[in-house]
Write a protein that binds this DNA or RNA. Structure first.
Length: 553
RNA sequence: UGUCCGAUGGUGUAACUGGCAACACGCCUGAUUUUGAUUCAGGAAAGUCCAGGUUCGAGCCCUGGUCGGACAACCA
């Protein structure tokens, strides 16, 4: 049976193009500007562009849109390449818009020759004033009718560095009365005496986005140039340049960018969070950047699955971060090894267990994966359990530990709470329990059935580790609808550090970026800040918790 | 006042291109469970922005509205 999954609108376009014989092969590109780190929104675009090419047997170029030397850096190039690879994609060619600076310059000359571009001496304020408004037409620049010869001479002089930044620009000569603002003689080259991360000081004029992107697409024979909705008004210009330059007719298609609840996704805002120290850096696990979610413990598989699930369309959307969490739990449940870690300990003394005795019990590494094997867990007379797993006066459906009640210790024995020892202030100090020797995990002949199973750690074998618990960075669901500064909505409790919690000794095997499920607690990932003496774990996501919901009622 | 884009359960995406709205997340029940996890079974939830029209039949087509978004950086 071939359960055909329905196509998104881009797949539909491509299949039609292919059927019509318009292309033999699909070529797409992922075109980041190297001025920041990649985030989840980019992940959507990456999965889309590479996914389309994969599906239809073509390829994808990685092209850095590096036409603005003042904001772009090699550091970003490296992180971007690293993130794309980590996500699981391989580009056909690593390219740069700056590779095409000479060709782009020739293109500009061609436009001048055709009388379709001119050098303008107006200031940026004057040009802005000439533009008009969306509802009022613009006015021609006084320099609009320079001769072709004069324009060529001036443009050459711009290139040769004869002018200062801002003194002159090259503009396309389209139509200042055009209904589309982008067609009102857009600037296509500006002077910037700045050092470029790749071309160094070879150039002092740089093409604008509109004069670089479509042309780069054409040079690379990109068949389907996929970008986000805000570029819709640019498409007319994109096509205008292709037509007038008579170059390969790439086509631009637009889809709606990803928005997530409780999250900001603009590079500008993310940069602000970093610069103003609201977070520790681009890879702070609370950030939506790929380097951050990687550090937090998200897997590339789960992110790809997420991108698959959210779909692609043209309408604006706000995706519940809960869906991302679902995807990551789904994957981590299958692959992560299990460990027991007690966050807020209460000591339990098993009064009928021999003093000084230690026995090694066996626990499955991962019950979802029979091949994962098992680990040894030391058991002894004194153990820690989670404080919230004991209640002196439990509500009706509480099936954890309480006076007189029995619970199973995971992979160990059933115990019964006999005595509650309190300190002078009446706080629970320790619990005295008895264990059922015949109830040992795997060879239980006790015949006793208990409802609750708790995680635990042997006191004398416990290993102290640090855990960092993350919550959403913002307090409101939809930041785009929030009034005022987005930083006013930052969640002050987005990070909770527990400097020392108690883990079973098997935790010592952990290597950087290893992912575990801490039983009943959530998924955790070893942070690169860890040292051999001090392991630090980031909480990727909690487990679903029906009891927490029930207890609230 | 303009042009463009969009509108389907709470959220997102579908609907063989005109044949009585499906899938996923979330939510609620129940079963299983040595993780109140996982898994499994079931359920509630939109009549498709509105008003007309074409048609035997409209979420899909037409007309007119409404609402939301984008567009005036020497940013991309």
């Amino acid at each position: 049976m071939t359960e055909e999954k329905s196509l998104n609108f881009l797949e539909e376009i491509i299949e039609n193009d292919l059927q019509a014989g318009k292309y033999k092969k699909i070529i797409t590109r992922f075109p980041p500007e190297p001025n920041g780190y990649l985030h989840m929104g980019h992940a959507k675009s990456i999965c889309l562009n590479f996914g389309l090419a994969n599906k239809y047997g073509g390829y994808t170029n990685l092209r850095f849109d590096d036409t603005n030397p003042v904001t772009e850096e090699t550091e970003y190039v490296e992180s971007i390449k690293n993130d794309v690879k980590w996500l699981g994609f391989q580009w056909e060619n690593e390219l740069y818009a700056s590779d095409y600076f000479s060709q782009l310059y020739e293109f500009a000359l061609k436009l001048i020759d055709k009388g379709l571009a001119y050098v303008d001496d107006s200031t940026s304020e004057e040009i802005a004033a000439q533009k008009g408004t969306p509802t009022q037409p613009g006015k021609d620049s006084p320099f609009r009718n320079r001769t072709i010869e004069e324009n060529k001479k001036l443009f050459l002089e711009m290139k040769e560095g004869k002018y200062r930044d801002g003194e002159k620009v090259l503009r396309a000569k389209v139509d200042m009365g055009h209904i589309n603002m982008h067609m009102r003689d857009p600037i296509i080259y500006r002077i910037k005496h700045a050092h470029h991360h790749r071309t160094g000081d070879a150039w002092c004029i740089y093409p604008m986005y509109d004069f670089a992107h479509g042309q780069s697409d054409a040079i690379e024979n990109i068949t389907h140039s996929v970008c986000t909705l805000e570029f819709i008004p640019h498409r007319e210009l994109y096509d205008w340049f292709i037509k007038n330059l008579d170059i390969y007719p790439s086509h631009q298609y637009e889809f709606a960018r990803l928005n997530m609840t409780y999250t900001v996704m603009s590079k500008r805002k993310l940069l602000q969070l970093v610069n103003e120290k609201y977070v520790a850096g681009w890879d702070d696990p609370r950030m939506p950047t790929l380097s951050a979610v990687r550090r937090r413990g998200y897997t590339p598989e789960s992110i790809r699955e997420f991108c698959e699930k959210i779909g692609v369309a043209k309408r604006e959307n706000l995706i519940d971060v809960g869906l991302l969490e679902f995807c990551v739990r789904e994957h981590l449940n299958k692959i992560s090894l299990r460990r027991m870690v007690v966050f807020e300990p209460v000591k339990v003394v098993i009064t009928n267990y021999p003093e000084g005795k230690t026995e090694m019990l066996h626990g499955e590494e991962n019950p979802e994966d029979p091949n994962a094997g098992s680990r040894e867990i030391p058991f002894s007379r004194e153990i820690y359990i989670e404080a919230e797993d004991f209640m002196e006066n439990p509500p009706k459906k509480y099936f954890r530990l309480a006076p007189g009640q029995m619970v199973r210790l995971k992979s160990a024995y059933i115990i019964k709470c006999e005595n509650v020892i309190k300190d002078a202030n009446g706080n629970v100090k320790e619990l005295h329990c008895t264990y059922i020797p015949e109830s040992r995990s795997g060879s239980d002949t006790s015949g006793i059935n208990v409802k609750g199973t708790l995680h635990w750690v042997s006191v004398q074998h416990a290993v102290a580790i640090e855990t960092r618990l993350y919550d959403r960075l913002f307090k409101v669901e939809d930041l785009s609808q929030a009034e005022g500064d987005f930083k006013d909505y930052i969640n002050p409790d987005s990070l909770q550090v527990l400097p020392a919690v108690y883990a079973e000794p098997a935790i010592l095997q952990a290597k950087i970026e290893d992912r575990y499920q801490f039983l009943r607690k959530g998924y955790f990932c070893l942070d690169p800040d860890s040292t051999p003496g001090k392991l630090i774990f980031n909480r990727t996501v909690t487990l679903r918790d029906m009891w927490a919901k029930e207890a609230k009622k």
